[in-house]
Design a protein around this nucleic acid. Sequence first.
DNA 1: AGGCTTTAGTACAATATCGAACTAGTTCAG
DNA 2: CTGAACTAGTTCGATATTGTACTAAAGCCT
Lengths: 138, 138
Amino acid sequence: MSVDAAQLWTLNHRLLTVVLDACSAELAELGLEAKEFFVLAEVAASPYPAELAARLVIPKASVTVYVRNLVAKGFMRREIDDADLRRHRLVLTDEGEAARDRALAALAAEFDRRLTTIVPRDRAELHRILLALLEPAQ
Amino acid sequence: MSVDAAQLWTLNHRLLTVVLDACSAELAELGLEAKEFFVLAEVAASPYPAELAARLVIPKASVTVYVRNLVAKGFMRREIDDADLRRHRLVLTDEGEAARDRALAALAAEFDRRLTTIVPRDRAELHRILLALLEPAQ
DNA sequence: AGGCTTTAGTACAATATCGAACTAGTTCAG
DNA sequence: CTGAACTAGTTCGATATTGTACTAAAGCCT
């Protein structure tokens, strides 16, 4: 192996931690905790609590809490799923979409502040490699 | 921007979450929580609690807890720093080093399980790009 | 149709995390 | 020296997280 996977993992983990931390103040201004933001950002793709829990790799009980908070803040609402009465279909409100987009923009800006230090070709490379790495999971 | 930074960030975050989750059972067998593992893995490079807190971007109070657990488990011990009597120099025990190395190996194996799906040249690329991205922080 | 198993979501109690206040040691200006 | 300002680390109490047990609805036999 040319590059140590453990070292690679540690580097990457540190990168994400630092970027997220740098954005936490901006997220807070939008009325979002980091954990809540992850839920908000995934709702469109995975609109059911159980699906969110699986996708985000967090406990169902935690999703219940984050969704409750996000609903209280007016960022989303629950609707009963017609096809399966056990399920709560989560729907983003306009405010929810706006907050999500602004939060994503803040995160992207901070990440970008670091990405700009590398050449465009490397960004494309990074994107391609990360996609390949996520492949086995899907 | 050729590649969306927000999307890149999300992909990367998901990758690390999934890898860490896949390893959590193995870490547990070694007697380690994920958070404790991060501390254990950094102690050699940052042997003081305040330094660990800054490096890992976690509160000092949390470091206190993780260090207490790791000491109780016999993975490290505190020594009074000769140069500054306020500071606790943290020293890994042999068991601590062994556990850290095995945990890192488990993490590397899981990460590697994904890395093997990409060509060696891409690994080197990824390593180079991540290092470049972390540059501004240091 | 009736029971058995599985799944979605929640509630609650136990545990984990962490902000703020604190103690102890250090530094440094005067 | 001395004491004001600072730093390392911990403690404590408040908040956040989550395992487990639960209710309700579906799905699946037979």
